[in-house]
Simulated assay, not measured.
Amino acid sequence: MLTALRSPSVTLAAVDVAGVRVLLDPPLAVTALAFVAGGVLLGTVSGLTPGLHANNMALLLASAASSVPGPPRLVGAALLATGVVHTFLDVVPALALGVPDPAMAASALPGHRLVLEGRGREALRLSALGSGVAVLLAVPLAIPVTRAMVAVYPTLRAQLPLVLGAVALVLVLTERDGTRMLVGAGSFLASGALGWATLDIDPAAPLAVGGVLTPLFAGLFGAPVLVDALGGSGVPRQDDATVATAPRTVARLGAVGALTGAVVGYVPGVSSAVAATVALLAVGGSGARGFVVTTSGVNTANSIFAKTQ
């Protein structure tokens, strides 16, 4: 049954669903959709722009939140939409830029290997499927994962240095040979030194929030890819977008990525790529295609859970 409830300022529609009365506010729904559409637009821009991270858009939204008309929770909805859409689209510049020469295929990222094989369109579809599975599982995972993390987080927080150290050790020890282990350990130490030297700096920036993170994100996520792309021979001719991986495998890897991303959304210092690597170790690995699906699932789930805490 649909009835109308009137007040001096607003008209609400009341819908009885299985004995539960749900109040609908059409003007608020339209406003919420407008905020979500704005978030989709921002996520599209950040996802397709090399070096522009979703957190850059989050800084913009945070700085403008006080002057935006409407309830603050709608700004949060726009922020969530920005992050989720970004995770669907950031694979496009990741695959299109920084593709190495064929002679360097052994050192290419899993997604780049697919591009070098002419399977770039398939990689885009695999990424979208992984992110889609994560979105579908985010709702049923929300309550159990949140309850579990609330229960264990005090212990996790107290032992966070040990947890992060163990994750870094696993990543280094799972490299294929001693040289790669040394390079991995050096990269880890270099990133730690960068954070140690820069995170306490407070530059005179146009935005009052974010500090040094905005230039760090642009430099770390954008500059290396663009510089590497200067020396590449371009993207080779691509074949059709047919997915060669079995649907059941895609669903399984996407589900593993979604669960892992939901958990690491509560763990500071663990990125989506790191979580995907650990997840693939747990399921036995599935090559470049498995990495693309799992990473996309982790990335999207991580974005959803990290922004809804």
Rank of each mutant, 00 (worst) to 15 (best):
A218G: 00
V274A: 11
F305V: 07
L216S: 07
G211N: 06
V243D: 03
V293D: 05
T300N: 02
G284V: 07
V256W: 04
A241R: 13
F305R: 03
A251Q: 02
V270L: 10
S303C: 14
T277I: 04
Q238L: 13
I304S: 06
V292P: 00
F221E: 12
V270C: 04
T245Y: 07
A229N: 14
T294Y: 00
Q238H: 13
G297Q: 13
V212A: 15
V274N: 15
A306S: 15
V212F: 08
P215Q: 02
G269E: 13
T277Y: 02
V227T: 12
G234A: 09
V264H: 05
A258K: 05
V227N: 05
G232N: 12
S286I: 00
A246T: 06
G234R: 14
A288T: 09
G285A: 06
L253R: 10
R237I: 11
V212L: 10
P247W: 02
V274G: 06
V212R: 00
A275D: 03
D228C: 10
D228S: 12
L230E: 07
T277H: 03
V256I: 13
G269P: 11
T260V: 14
A288H: 13
N299C: 01
G257Y: 00
R248F: 05
A282T: 07
S271Y: 09
F291E: 05
F305K: 07
A275G: 15
A223S: 08
G234V: 11
A218N: 00
V267N: 13
Q238K: 08
R237E: 14
G285D: 04
G257M: 02
G210Q: 05
A246R: 11
V263K: 08
T260D: 10
G232Q: 11
V283C: 06
T294D: 00
V293G: 08
Y266G: 14
V270S: 01
V270A: 00
P247A: 05
F221W: 14
L259Y: 04
V250P: 01
V212G: 09
V250R: 05
S296H: 14
G234C: 07
